[in-house]
C-alpha cells in the first residue's frame, strides 16, 4: 500500500496526460464557486481574456460592458477601436502592476504621468494605445477621453460581482521618476523612447502578487467594502519579445512561471479566488503545440473552443440573463411609437 494507489487517473502523467483526451480532460478544472446567472461579470487582462469574454457572452452570462460601442459603429469595427472586447475600453492589461495603477487612478490616489503619446501629428492614450489606432487630435482630447474612461471603470468596479482577469506579462516599462507603468514600450506603437525617462522592469513573484493583493483592496474600497469574486487565468500566449537580455524562450518561461505561481497562491490563499487552468490546457505537451497557430503564439479559435468547453463543463451555459438596458430601450421605442402614431392620427385622421 502506498499513498498513490488510491489516487485517480488524473493524478498520473501517463493516464492523466499521455493517454487522455487533450480536448476533454477529466478533472482538470473543478469550480470553487457557482456563477449565478444574474452575476455581473467583468473581464480584463491580456489578449487571451478577449476570448473568455466573448465565450461568456455567447453562453448567456451577464458580461458587463460599461463602454459599449456607439450604435452606429459597424460590428466588424468594434475590435479595432477597443469596443466589445473587455468590460471597459481599457485595452490589454498585461501586468498586475498596470491593473493596480488603473485601480489607484480610479480611486483618485494616482495621476499617471506622460499620458498622451505622440504618433505623427496625432496623440494616443499611452495607457491604452491600441483603442484609437489613428490617434486623437490633441493632448486635451486624450485627457477628455481618459477622464470618461476612468469614470466608466469606476462604475464597472462598483457594479461587478465577479472579476475575471488574465495574467499576461511580467515585463513592463516605467516612467522613471513617477513609476507610471505603460502597457507597451514607448516608441513601439506611439511615443518616443528616451532611456533617461523610461526604464524596463521585469516583475518578481512578490511584486506581481503584491500588486494584485493591493489592487483587490482598492477595488473593495471603491465598492464601499462590498466583496466580489475573482477568476484568474494565465495567458498561454508566449512573449513576442523580451527586453531582459535573455533568450525569449527563457524569458517566456520565467514570466509564465511567475504568473502561474501567483495565480496558484492567490487561489490557495483566498476563498473568493478561483483559478481556471486555460494555460495548462493550451500548453499540454499532448497537443504538440497544435493549439497554437503557425506563429506558435496565437491560440487557434478551435483551441479556445475546447478550452472554454472545460470552463462551461463546470459553469454550464445559462439562459440569457441580460436585462435592464435592452428592456429600457424597448420601452422607449414603444413609447416613441405611440407618440408618433398619435401625431399621425391627429394630423391625417387615419
Amino acid at each position: 500500500m502506498n499513498p498513490y494507489e488510491i489516487l485517480p487517473s488524473a493524478a498520473f502523467w501517463k493516464s492523466g496526460v499521455v493517454s487522455a483526451n487533450p480536448y476533454k480532460m477529466e478533472g482538470i478544472y473543478r469550480k470553487k464557486f457557482e456563477i449565478d446567472r444574474t452575476a455581473r461579470i467583468a473581464t480584463a487582462g491580456s489578449c487571451f481574456a478577449q476570448h473568455i469574454s466573448r465565450h461568456l457572452n455567447k453562453n448567456g452570462y451577464r458580461v458587463l460592458d460599461v463602454e459599449p460601442a456607439p450604435l452606429g459603429l459597424p460590428r466588424e469595427k468594434h475590435l479595432a477601436f477597443g469596443y466589445s472586447t473587455y468590460s471597459a475600453r481599457y485595452g490589454n492589461i498585461y501586468t498586475t502592476r498596470q491593473l493596480l495603477q488603473l485601480a489607484r487612478e480610479v480611486a483618485g490616489e494616482f495621476i499617471p504621468e506622460n499620458v498622451a503619446w505622440q504618433k505623427g501629428d496625432r496623440f494616443v492614450d499611452a495607457m491604452r494605445p491600441a483603442v484609437e489606432p489613428k490617434g486623437l487630435q490633441s493632448r486635451s482630447e486624450v485627457t477628455l477621453h481618459r477622464r470618461h474612461h476612468i469614470k466608466m471603470v469606476e462604475k464597472l468596479f462598483k457594479q461587478l460581482d465577479i472579476f475575471i482577469f488574465t495574467l499576461g506579462l511580467t515585463e513592463t516599462w516605467l516612467h522613471r521618476s513617477t513609476g507610471t507603468v505603460y502597457p507597451t514600450a514607448p516608441g513601439t506603437i506611439a511615443g518616443t523612447f528616451d532611456a533617461n525617462e523610461f526604464v524596463f522592469q521585469n516583475e518578481s513573484y512578490d511584486e506581481v502578487l503584491g500588486a494584485f493583493e493591493e489592487c483587490q483592496e482598492i477595488i473593495k474600497r471603491i465598492r464601499g467594502g462590498r466583496p466580489f469574486k475573482v477568476i484568474l487565468t494565465v495567458s498561454p500566449v508566449p512573449l513576442t519579445a523580451t527586453a531582459t537580455g535573455n533568450h525569449v524562450l527563457v524569458a517566456t518561461s520565467y514570466s509564465k512561471a511567475v504568473l502561474r505561481s501567483v495565480a496558484g497562491t492567490l487561489s490557495a490563499r483566498h476563498e473568493h479566488i478561483d483559478y481556471f487552468p486555460s494555460y495548462e490546457i493550451v500548453t499540454n505537451p499532448r497537443l504538440h503545440s497544435t493549439a497554437f497557430a503557425d506563429n506558435l503564439r496565437s491560440v487557434r479559435d478551435e483551441t479556445v473552443e475546447f478550452v472554454m468547453g472545460h470552463f462551461f463543463a463546470e459553469h454550464p451555459p445559462v439562459a440569457s440573463a441580460k436585462d435592464a438596458p435592452n428592456e429600457e430601450s424597448a420601452g422607449d421605442d414603444a413609447k416613441e411609437d405611440v407618440q408618433c402614431e398619435e401625431a399621425l392620427l391627429e394630423a391625417f385622421g387615419r
Binding site: 452606429g72 459597424p74 484609437e132 489606432p133 486623437l136 470618461h148
Partner: peptide
C-alpha cells in the same frame, strides 16, 4: 440618437466609420 447615445466622447475616426 439611432447612432449614438450618452456622454462617451467619440473620436473622428470612430465617427467616420459610423457615418
Amino acid at each position: 440618437q439611432r447612432f449614438m447615445k450618452g456622454p462617451a466622447p467619440l473620436s473622428d475616426a470612430v465617427l467616420d466609420e459610423m457615418f
